[in-house]
Design a protein around this nucleic acid. Structure first.
Lengths: 191, 191
DNA sequence: TAGGGCACTTAACCTAGATTAAGAAATAAC
DNA sequence: GTTATTTCTTAATCTAGGTTAAGTGCCCTA
């Protein structure tokens, strides 16, 4: 069974017919690393489910500094939630960091699926709740932990990412400059 | 019509019977300022909808420093989302800051309502999506804006709160110490 | 009406992390 | 295989915001 159906099955039970309907509403595509799926200023039309590869969402401040909002690897969804909801231009970029196979669910198809398989409201509610919890924890961590502690948490939470994404992006995710991150890293190693 | 039904009506349409069913599943109570509705370490049993008054959720770090996660005034929901979802002990406190009338929706009744009025899945999905968007923006703000800029945003977003909640709690919400907040405030005034 | 706490202010000093800059190492491009 | 570009490191210097501490005003409640 496809990863996305496994993902759904963790929270709700779909009949075979519903599964087929769901699959008929998504498009699976391959994207090369460095592809930008969404630019700041565009309206986000899709939720992206990651079958394989790694993506990130980020914004750019004053045309200079990047800030990573999220990483997504296999089994995760990613998108610009603000832009998806409002269908107004967002300020996020979504980029492929490592060659990826993605399942694209368009906003329109998502709405169609909600009416045809109301159970999916439940699925996406649960998904969103979980994201919210993770986000709230990260927010509190940013308010209360040191950069080093945030890095430790990142390591235990996303052990696979550390080898795979450029460390300046991890620095950005935990909220420090690449230079400070490098200093911190060598400080940790030398003890 | 009660505030909570108006709130729901913004996103989904309930029949009169459904409205009555919904109301039968919530308890409306009055709480005095300073009441702690939820302590860190407890399992959160209710979502709280604010009819009037002001609440906040916060955690306490190393038994010393408070960090405000959210304020809630009339028309807002508040709870410990992590604990509500998992039904495990959370680390948030929920406190009444200003005498409040609250509608309490227990986790069990919420689940019952989901089965009896499936449309409510949609309502709470939308609610959670909106919270997530707000949270993500706050996270990015904490990564990219100065304390002063965060304060300005807070002022334009929650103008009513500034007069009503102790400023050390606003300081905590935007992520600075009360001392620095005070310094910053007088700097802003003197120009 | 006193007095014990909070909330707020002010000021001196301190530090985690930013900035700037320049070189080394790794990737990518040709 | 060489050059160009990006990433990472190191180090000096700087600053936003933290810490400590002492003092002021203000509810409270007795």
């Amino acid at each position: 069974m496809s990863l996305i159906l496994q993902n759904i099955a963790k929270h709700i039970a779909l009949t075979t017919a519903e599964q087929e309907l769901f699959l008929s509403k998504i498009e699976v595509h391959h994207f090369d690393a460095k592809t930008i799926l969404l630019h700041s200023g565009e309206v986000c039309k899709y939720s992206y489910f990651v079958n394989s590869g790694i993506l990130r969402s980020f914004n750019i401040n004053d045309n200079i500094v990047e800030h990573v909002l999220n990483f997504a690897c296999a089994g995760y969804w990613i998108g610009d939630m603000y832009s998806l909801i409002t269908q107004k231009p967002g300020n996020l970029f979504i980029e492929v960091l490592e060659d990826a196979e993605l399942a694209l669910l368009s906003k329109e198809n998502q709405e169609i699926l909600y009416t045809e398989i109301p159970k999916l409201e439940r699925f996406f509610r649960i998904l969103t709740e979980n994201s919210l919890v993770v986000n709230q924890e990260r927010l509190m961590d940013n308010l209360s932990l040191s950069a080093e502690e945030r890095f430790e948490k990142f390591c235990s939470k996303y052990p696979t990412l550390i080898q795979k994404v450029p460390q300046k992006q991890i620095a950005s995710y935990i909220g420090v400059t690449p230079e400070f991150f490098s200093k911190m890293k060598s400080k940790i190693l030398h003890r």
